[in-house]
Write a protein that binds this DNA or RNA. Structure first.
Length: 553
RNA sequence: GCCCCCGUAGCUCAGUGGAUAGAGCGCCGGCCUCCGGAGCCGGAAGCGUGGGUUCGAGUCCCGCCGGGGGUACCA
């Protein structure tokens, strides 16, 4: 990327200045190349002189001039300017910019790729909601974010696997089974109340009805006997199928669906626990088994096996991460959790570290929860109370792409409010259509060109000199930089904003530059290349977000 | 109480410690003899609050105010 080349140039300028005796031999901070907000400040800039001033004992502006004087030449850079109070600004040459159109066209979707991950094996696990009820609208946020992050990391050179972990073994399954059994019994006229801690949602009645169709009354047990496990398993399977379908309708597909039961069956649970036990971190007390995190600096210990004999969520998660790192050998693991799980972050990190896994191989992204609202009314998300807005409902009423765009455009740190009424009303105003419209518009232009320009091949991009043309090229060139930034920060929410900016500069170009012009076939052919490149970059951006890039709307 | 996240335009949200803080929606005013007006151009309007660090703070640190989450042998 050109930005990296500029960083190397700055480094070389420093070396040359030192050798020439124009700069004392001082330690160099990281060279940061930034993008100025204003075009007059150039395409790229560095504030290195400001940072070096004190150590070098010189005025920033003079340091800047020294660096500029020693700056090696480059075909891509038209001029280097020093601006007060101490910036060095780099202006890209128009000719070089125009050439990039050919490079972008040639690269296609690979234009967004950057060699950052070097083939490292990374897992992204997200959503992983319990299969005890349908996904709610808030789960869509993690689906959008996780799947996009996975594609971004892929583009950044990582070998990525996505995973959905579903809980088919814990205590919630027991609650679920008792609830569905209550509903099932009710269908046969028995007085069986839904347990106090059970799932109140009406979908449980539907599941019971499905069970009745499938099993008849064969699962009825004598009064007072516990719920049959088979009924629970049946329900879990049905709900898992709903979840798969909802995610598929959002365009989210996983490489692996991982069952919690696997943690036990594969002995990962036992092996993980054994490591911690060997280190003296497992203690028994008050009838339960504890992970002694206080020995690792925490302010309280964590229960791993309840006095009932059932492992806790944390315990299975320890085994699960043993499996991720020590069995499946991912170089990096990224878990996306809602902030309601934040209390588990430290204990799990401590466990991973205690298993001798380098702590920075595990990244747990905590996303703030989605608050749902319908007009004035706030809706509490709770599967157990049954008062919820399902993801399916939102996808159907707002549309897949608009839904993805909404969830994706907010930082994970922002608690967002999803007003279902507003979302429905504004779905036509969703920015995603603005971006898709730009893509469709280009498709239209290309069709017109086919009719009117018999020979539309081989445009000469050096004819592209209009400010609107160059602005479009400049914006396209940001995509690889953005992919790299997102892969580093794990913040995919920048992508929709970028796509919109790209669409904006395209629309501006469209207003100012006529592409298909019978009187000027050479310029038309050059501009056709430009819009074809823009179409490709728009499609790539939309593709990274899991959205469609339609030729017609 | 303690821990984590957040307070930026009327609303929903962006903003790698840099040079004059942005977008969408909403509001006001303009633009179709011409490739798709789901578009373009212009306008009004903002960093919760008080200190500190820095050449430079919306961004980092501390206090206060406000919102969300956690602090379970639930996940």
């Amino acid at each position: 990327m050109i930005r990296d080349e500029i960083a190397r140039m700055v480094e070389e300028a420093v070396d040359r200045a030192k050798k020439a005796g124009d700069l004392p031999a001082i330690a160099l901070p990281d060279i940061v190349i930034e993008r100025p907000q204003r075009l007059e400040h150039g395409d790229y800039a560095t504030s290195l002189p400001l940072r070096l001033a004190r150590a070098a004992g010189a005025k920033p502006i003079e340091l800047g001039q020294t660096l500029a004087r020693h700056m090696p030449p480059s075909d891509a850079i038209e001029r280097v300017e020093v601006a007060p109070p101490g910036f060095v600004n780099f202006h890209l040459s128009k000719g070089w910019l125009a050439q990039q159109v050919d490079s972008i066209l040639e690269a296609g979707a690979a234009f967004a790729e950057v060699p950052l991950g070097k083939g490292q094996k990374v897992q992204v696990e997200f959503v992983s909601a319990n299969p005890t009820g349908p996904l709610h609208a808030g789960n869509g946020r993690w689906a959008a974010m996780g799947s996009t992050l996975a594609r971004v990391l892929q583009a950044a050179g990582y070998q990525v696997e996505t995973e959905y972990y579903f809980n088919d073994a814990g205590s919630q399954v027991d609650v679920f089974t008792r609830t569905i059994y209550a509903r099932y019994q009710q269908l046969f006229g028995r007085e069986a109340p839904v347990p106090d801690d059970g799932y109140a949602g009406s979908y449980m009645v539907g599941l019971a009805e499905q069970a009745r169709e499938r099993f008849g009354d064969s699962l009825l047990r004598p009064e007072g006997e516990p719920a049959p496990e088979e009924l629970g398993r049946f329900g879990i399977e049905q709900v898992t199928e709903w979840i798969r379908n909802d995610l598929a309708d959002l365009g989210v597909h996983y490489d692996h669906w991982y069952r919690e039961q696997t943690v036990y069956d594969s002995k990962a649970f036992d092996k993980g626990m054994a490591i911690l036990r060997k280190k003296g971190l497992i203690v028994e007390r008050e009838g339960a088994v504890w992970f002694a995190t206080t020995q690792l600096g925490a302010d309280k210990d964590e229960v791993v096996v309840r006095s009932s004999g059932l492992p806790t969520y944390l315990a299975t998660d320890i085994g699960y991460h043993y499996d991720k790192f020590l069995v499946r050998k991912f170089d990096r693991v990224i878990d996306i959790w809602g902030s309601d799980h934040q209390g588990h972050v430290r204990p799990l990190q401590l466990a991973v570290e205690a298993m001798a896994i380098e702590p920075d191989r595990l990244t747990i992204l905590i996303g703030q929860l989605v608050t749902l609202r319908r007009g004035e009314e706030t809706i509490k998300i709770s599967k157990r109370s049954g008062d919820m807005v399902t993801l399916r409902e939102v996808i159907e009423e707002v549309g897949k792409d608009a839904c993805l765009y909404f969830f994706l455009s907010r930082s994970a740190d922002a608690q967002i409010e999803f007003d279902l009424e507003l979302a429905k009303r504004q779905s036509n105003d969703n920015p995603v259509y603005y971006v898709q419209y730009a893509h469709a518009r280009i498709a239209g232009i290309i069709n017109v060109a086919k009719e009117r320009l018999p020979d539309s091949q081989g445009g000469d991009t050096s004819l592209l000199i209009h400010p609107a043309e160059l602005a479009l090229i400049r914006k396209m060139l940001q995509l690889p930089e953005l992919v790299e930034a997102m892969a580093r920060s794990l913040e995919p929410h920048h992508l929709p904003h970028y796509a919109q900016e790209l669409a904006t500069v395209f629309h501006d170009f469209y207003e100012n530059c006529r592409v298909v012009d019978d009187d000027n076939p050479d310029l038309s052919k050059a501009r056709l290349k430009l819009v074809a490149a823009a179409k490709s970059v728009l499609a790539t951006s939309l593709g990274l977000m899991g959205m469609s890039a339609p030729d017609r709307m």
